[in-house]
Structure formats: structure tokens, C-alpha cells
Design a protein around this nucleic acid. Structure first.
Length: 496
RNA sequence: GAGGGUGUAGCUCAGCUGGUAGAGCAACGGCCUUUUAAGCCGUGGGUCCUGGGUUCGAGCCCCAGCACCCUCACCA
């Protein structure tokens, strides 16, 4: 009788047998004096050091009255050697009742086995938490300095739904999320070090804005009103620029009610930064410098592997104008062409323009199909058409364009930035153009935000703004193929 | 949203042309005081994703559904 239920019953039965030994299977605390990896790194083979380690049993090899096991803590693994004549009969009886997955504390002395593995010779063994549900058994060995893994826990659905199991048995997964955490704290440190203020703005908004996207809608009972989950922080952060905070950033979840794929999750983390008295060229330099800093400080290199190739994050990144990139891709100048001419160019290039209308949308179709996929090493695409950029300032010298750039890496958009539009009259006209698109059925068009315009009418300094998708940045820096590999609990349909 | 794929023991996977459901690891019992993917001997373990259908008989064929994965479309 050993279905999952029976395996659980066996282990629940062990709880009683452990209590029969006068031991409690769920402890309150345990004093750790060392972490596994530190012991392994520091031990020379001489000293008779006593250590207390705590963690999860990952392997057990029993040989009658003596056994070896591996314990895993936050730092890594260390081998345990448990001998009945060392820890006593009662503790060894306890050990015989333990399973892979149990959490234990062990005090003992460090030594090296005959085969040279640094090991803790146990003097005492404490059960800290009994496992009742069998863990996937992943085995590994080192062959020709390569780690070979057997029976890896690989089912993506189970890995995402039960991330706790994934984290226990797949050390690479754990490494990715540790790196993610370091990347975010390094960004904070970088920005705080330059005097920018971290702020928090509403996630529940009566009017959504700051990006072109469909929102999630919710309802507030007490106010009996519709609220939207933010699709961007942008308009609130720029209100703070009006308010004189001059340099503000926010690292927060945005929510967009759209499709999901390798690089889209409905909730995702965005860094937005606004700096008064600067323009988009300042922001380009900042992005290049900050990402470069992350490469060296977190990953230890400016050239990183990604999808079997290498990404070179060294400065300076390539910079190319949007219209130049499109012209080059189709082998034809598109700068001064009107909508009909650009439609023809797109068709000639074999791009399905379907029912697209508007010069900007057509250019974007060409850009997405012919330019974006080929941008492997970090590249700034600059000076986007005004139709695509309702919150960006008109280019100071090139009509029809805005002072805006996006950085692309490995065919993926990494960030979006512009010299912020600070002319309230111009901004009102752009909003009105968006309203016309919305009335024509564009569900992603922006909604006019009167309070934002009111704020801008009080006077907004020239400002550079930036948004970086943190999830995508982490994907690039950790060679992760899917956004779900860098989000601890990606959005899933519920089970059953 | 479209197309393709996958779903069998706790985990990783076999399962032929439709004929009583298999392996390794894990578990359980026995032996074993320097092992390491996996010592030796033995035992048990299944909603074959779900619901219909065809058939004497379905893990396998048909229909519908669910979940996940991949590609494409939209989007950051």
C-alpha cells in the first residue's frame, strides 16, 4: 500500500515513533555556528573544529550502524558521517527514522574522509522538522569535472506551481533568484548613491496611464468606484518632479491585461526613474553605466552567455536612429515618406500590414519585423516617430520625431526612455490624439488625465525619464530563456 | 487568439499491431561502522489528466474538455 497517501501515512506514523523515543519532531530553534560551504572552503584537514550546522537532508547512505548523508543549507551542501557509537543508540534510532527532506541540526567535528570529502562527524543529531511528503530524488555525480544530473526535477508545470520544491532540488534556480535580488539591491544602491529618492506611488489608480496597454479593472467597495491596477508609474512620478523632488525612482509591479509568453507576465517589475534638468542623452549614458556596473559587480563580467551565444555589455553601446534603422532594413529611405508610401515599403518588404493604419503603426510593424530581431548586442534605438510616443518631447531639431530611445538586447526591448514632454499645451494635444484613437477602437490608447495636465501647467522642469523591465534585465544577465524562470511565482491557471 | 506537442507509481521515464500495467531511483522489511548516481536480498506501490464513445476487450482508436510546454500573433 504505497500510493502518495501511503507514503505520507508511513511518515506520519514515524512522527509517533519519534515521539516514542521522547523526541519532538518539530523544533523551535537551532543555533547554527557555521554554514556548509564555509566549512568546506575553510577546512584544511588539520584542525579539530566543532561546528553546528542545520539544513535539509538531501542524500542518505546507510550501512548498518554507520551512515553518510548530505545536508543542504542556504550556502550549499556538506557531508555528514553518523556513527551509532558516536551519537548513541537513541540518536541513531532517530536517524533510522529520518527521510530525505527532513530538516535536522547536527553538531560535530570536521574531518576529511578517506576519499577526501570534508565531512562533519556527528556528535549530536536533532530533528528540527519532519518531512511528510516525498521530495523528488535528484542524483548527481562529477564526471570529468562535469556535473551529471540524474532524474532532474524538470516538469515545468510542477516547478512553477511548487516553486518551493524547485528551489530545494534545483540549485541553479536558487542561484538565479539570489542574483535577481542582488541585481535589484545593486540598482537601488546605484541610484541612491546619485542622490535619487526612492518613492511609492499608487498601484490602484482611478485613471491609468503612462503606457499603451490594457489595464486590469477592479472595484473599491467603500468608495463604490472603479479602479485600475497601474500599467505604469510614469504620470505619478512626473507629478513629483513638478513637486520639486527632482530625482525620483520607483521599483514596482505593473499590471497589464495582455497575453503571456516567454517575455511577458501579467504582473512584472519595472524600474522607473525621472531626473529633472536632464535629457535623454543623459539617460542613455546612465543606462549604459548602470547595466555595466551590474555586469561587473553581480556577474563578474561584461560579456555574458545567453542562449548559447555571447552578449557584450561593454561601453559604448551602439546608437542608431529609428528611421535610419528602418531605412537600412528595407534598403530604402523612409524619413520623409507619407503613410501610403510607407505602407508600400512594408508590403514590398513582405510584411503583413493587415488593417494597420497610421504612419507610426506601419513604421512600427517594419521595425518589429525587420530591425528588432537582429539587435543582439545592446543597442540604443533613438528618435522614435511622434505618433508612437505621446509622452515624449518633440525632437529639438528633427521634425516628426521625439527625443526617445529604447535599448534592445538579444532581440528584446530592455528599456524605454525619453526627454519628457513638459509643455502642457502640446501634452493636451497628444492626449486628444490618443482619445481619437481610443474612440476609433484602439483599446490600448491612453486616457486623458486632467490632473496630470493641471500639474504640468504649474511648470515641469525639463526632465529625463526611464523605464527598465527588471524581469527582462534579469533574464539577460542570468541566461534565463523565459520570464517565468526569473519570477518566483509566475501567473498560472489554478489547479483542478 | 491560431497551430503543434505533452499528460502512465512520490520522481525520471518505457509501454509494439487494442489482449491481466513496466523499469530505475525513492518507500517498506532483513544484512551491513569510511560511503557517495545506485552495497546485497526481499516486499509493496497505479483515477494510465477528466468525461463520453467504438469494441468481447482501450494506457493505446474516435469525440469533447482541462492543464502545461513550444512556435506564431498582440504587448514591456
Amino acid at each position: 500500500m504505497e500510493s502518495l497517501n501511503d507514503l505520507r501515512k508511513q511518515r506520519i506514523d514515524k512522527l509517533g515513533r519519534i515521539r516514542d523515543l521522547n523526541l519532538e519532531p518539530f523544533a523551535y530553534a537551532y543555533e547554527q555556528t557555521h554554514f556548509a560551504a564555509d566549512i568546506v572552503a575553510a577546512f584544511t584537514g588539520e584542525e579539530q573544529e566543532s561546528v553546528s550546522v542545520a539544513g535539509r537532508l538531501m542524500t542518505v547512505r546507510r550501512m548498518g550502524k554507520a551512515s553518510f548523508a548530505h545536508l543542504m543549507d542556504r550556502s550549499g551542501r556538506i557531508q555528514l558521517y553518523i556513527k551509532q557509537d558516536h551519537i548513541g543508540e537513541r540518536s541513531y534510532d532517530l536517524f533510522k527514522l529520518l527521510d530525505i527532506g527532513d530538516i535536522v541540526g547536527v553538531t560535530g567535528t570536521v574531518f576529511k574522509t578517506r576519499t577526501g570529502e570534508t565531512t562533519v562527524l556527528a556528535e549530536s543529531l536533532t530533528l528540527l522538522a519532519k518531512n511528510l511528503r516525498p521530495l523528488p530524488i535528484v542524483k548527481e555525480k562529477i564526471e570529468d569535472d562535469e556535473k551529471v544530473i540524474f532524474d532532474q526535477f524538470a516538469d515545468k508545470e510542477m516547478r512553477y506551481r511548487q516553486r518551493y520544491v524547485d528551489l530545494i532540488v534545483n540549485p541553479d534556480v536558487r542561484d538565479v533568484f539570489i542574483k535577481r535580488s542582488r541585481i535589484v539591491s545593486e540598482i537601488r544602491r546605484y541610484l541612491e548613491g546619485r542622490g535619487y529618492l526612492e518613492v511609492e506611488t499608487p498601484a490602484l489608480q482611478p485613471i491609468y496611464g503612462g503606457a499603451l496597454a490594457r489595464p486590469f479593472v477592479t472595484h473599491h467597495n467603500a468608495l463604490d468606484m472603479q479602479l485600475f491596477l497601474r500599467i505604469a508609474d510614469e504620470l505619478y512620478l512626473k507629478r513629483l518632479i513638478v513637486g520639486g523632488l527632482d530625482g525620483v525612482f520607483e521599483i514596482a509591479k505593473d499590471f497589464r491585461n495582455e497575453g503571456m509568453d516567454r517575455d511577458h507576465n501579467p504582473e512584472f517589475t519595472m524600474l522607473e526613474l525621472y531626473v529633472a534638468y536632464q535629457d535623454y542623452t543623459f539617460m542613455m549614458d546612465l543606462v549604459e553605466d548602470m547595466v555595466g556596473r551590474l555586469c561587473t559587480d553581480v556577474l563578474g563580467s561584461h560579456t555574458l552567455p545567453f542562449h548559447g551565444r555571447t552578449i557584450d555589455f561593454r561601453s559604448p553601446w551602439k546608437r542608431i536612429g529609428y528611421m535610419d534603422a528602418v531605412s537600412e532594413a528595407v534598403g530604402e529611405e523612409v524619413h520623409d515618406r507619407d503613410e501610403a508610401e510607407i505602407r508600400n515599403v512594408a508590403k514590398k518588404a513582405g510584411i503583413d500590414v493587415g488593417d494597420l493604419s497610421g504612419r507610426g503603426a506601419l513604421l512600427d510593424a517594419i521595425f518589429s519585423a525587420r530591425v528588432e530581431p537582429d539587435l543582439w548586442n545592446p543597442t540604443f534605438i533613438t528618435d522614435f516617430p511622434i505618433e508612437l510616443s505621446p509622452l515624449a518631447k518633440k525632437h529639438r531639431s528633427r521634425p516628426g520625431l521625439t527625443e526617445r530611445f529604447e535599448a534592445f538586447v538579444a532581440g528584446m526591448e530592455l528599456c524605454n526612455s525619453f526627454s519628457e514632454l513638459n509643455d502642457p499645451v502640446d501634452q493636451r494635444e497628444r492626449f486628444e490624439a490618443q482619445t481619437r484613437l481610443k474612440e476609433a477602437g484602439d483599446e490600448e490608447a491612453m486616457v486623458l488625465d486632467d490632473d496630470y495636465l493641471r500639474a504640468m501647467e504649474y511648470g515641469m522642469p525639463p526632465t529625463a525619464g526611464l523605464g527598465i523591465g527588471i524581469d527582462r534585465l534579469v533574464m539577460l544577465l542570468t541566461d534565463s530563456p523565459s520570464i517565468r524562470d526569473v519570477i518566483l511565482f509566475p501567473t498560472m491557471r489554478p489547479e483542478q
